[in-house]
């Protein structure tokens, strides 16, 4: 079966999340990668539209090498400028028909979910979000394992539809290079669009959004209700500064207005994957843990030895964070 895989870009390269999606796609069949647009977003000003030739939309050598290494036999450059979700979906629908795709796969990112939801709406087919695995069953169905509750619960499901529209739970699928990669053939594709497809399209804005450093930080010092109020975060900031990390918080902290939402870790906040997550005064609700289970090491500081986080952490200190954290800061400073 031919599997179309939408590849998002990270500069000249394929984004890491898309390497994971390619790895997932490979488990289903022969992979054809698809990439759209030159830049991540279109600069404000000129109207959106299709560029002349697909070749211009550009699959550079770095991107071609990436998708080849992860097992794509072909890569289509779609002649589309910038990000217009419905147009991207229309292009995928057209290509899926052209190559008779049995599945269309994208990383479970904002864009991946959005484009595949449009594709589901355009085709009237079901879309399964955040799949951790998929394998062909008898009778042409797919047996899926997908994430619910942001991965706190797994669903075994059967998908009966062709093409199968799937996004990949990127936390659950590592990027694994193909065993016998071959250079992918680069092809151009010009989608047939109508005006409505281009009505909604992204323009870049100058400002940098917050929260990015939380997602990529090597150390996160977490604070929850146990911090007690907005003034309690000074020592967490100080510790985070010492460890070269950032502060992350629970939803109680953001909904109380103690800290901005961009610092929230969890199902409806940011997902983190640091070397160390030091979770202080946080009980460990499943929606919080969904955001930090990719941490290499979790250390909890909690007054309650029975708190759920103790059953999810690697190490724990039972005690009052108001006592433990200042002593920890002092001890680290004393080391010089």
């Amino acid at each position: 079966m031919t599997v179309l895989c939408l590849v998002e870009r990270d500069g000249e390269h394929a984004a890491d999340v898309s390497l994971r999606a390619l790895t997932f796609a490979r488990s289903l069949g022969d992979v054809t990668a698809v990439t759209m647009g030159n830049a991540a977003t279109r600069p404000a000003g000129p109207p959106p539209g299709a560029t002349g030739a697909g070749g211009d939309a550009g699959v550079g050598p770095a991107l071609a090498a990436d998708v080849s290494a992860y097992g794509a036999a072909e890569v289509y450059a779609v002649g589309l400028d910038g990000y217009a979700p419905q147009a991207w979906a229309r292009a995928l629908a057209g290509l899926a028909g052209e190559v008779a795709a049995g599945a269309v796969v994208a990383a479970g990112t904002d864009r991946g979910h959005e484009v595949l939801a449009h594709l589901g709406a355009i085709t009237g087919l079901p879309m399964a979000a955040n799949c951790a695995s998929a394998r062909p069953g008898e009778d042409g169905t797919l047996r899926l394992v997908r994430h619910r509750w942001a991965g706190s619960l797994l669903e075994d499901a059967v998908l009966e539809a062709s093409p199968a529209l799937l996004t990949v739970a990127v936390d659950a699928v590592p990027a694994v290079p193909a065993e016998q990669p071959a250079p992918a053939a680069v092809r151009a594709y010009q989608p047939v669009l109508d005006e409505a497809d281009l009505l909604v399209s992204a323009t870049e804005s100058a400002g940098r959004a917050g929260g990015a450093s939380l997602a990529t930080a090597r150390v996160v010092v977490g604070g929850g209700r146990g911090v007690g109020g907005p003034d309690g975060f000074g020592v967490l900031e100080e510790l985070a500064g010492l460890l070269g990390g950032v502060v992350g918080v629970s939803r109680v902290v953001t909904s109380e207005g103690w800290r901005p939402h961009q610092q929230q870790v969890g199902q409806t906040g940011t997902r983190i994957s640091p070397e160390l997550y030091l979770a202080c005064g946080i009980s460990g609700a499943i929606q919080h843990m969904a955001g930090c289970l990719s941490s290499k090491h979790i250390v909890a500081v909690n007054t309650d030895a029975g708190a759920p986080i103790i059953a999810r952490a690697d190490y724990a200190v039972i005690g009052d964070l108001n006592e433990v954290l200042p002593a920890l800061v002092a001890a680290i400073r004393a080391r010089g």
Binding site: A157, D314, Y315, I318
Partner: peptide, 30 residues
């Protein structure tokens, strides 16, 4: 076309933290 068969809790969810100690006394181990 997408049918739920069964829900299950992911296996690795239950570990037990190694307790480093209590209060400020745990700081050297930490």
């Amino acid at each position: 076309g997408l049918r739920k068969e069964r829900l299950r809790v992911p296996p690795a969810q239950n570990k037990r933290a190694e307790i480093l100690g209590t209060g400020a006394g745990a700081v050297p181990a930490l």
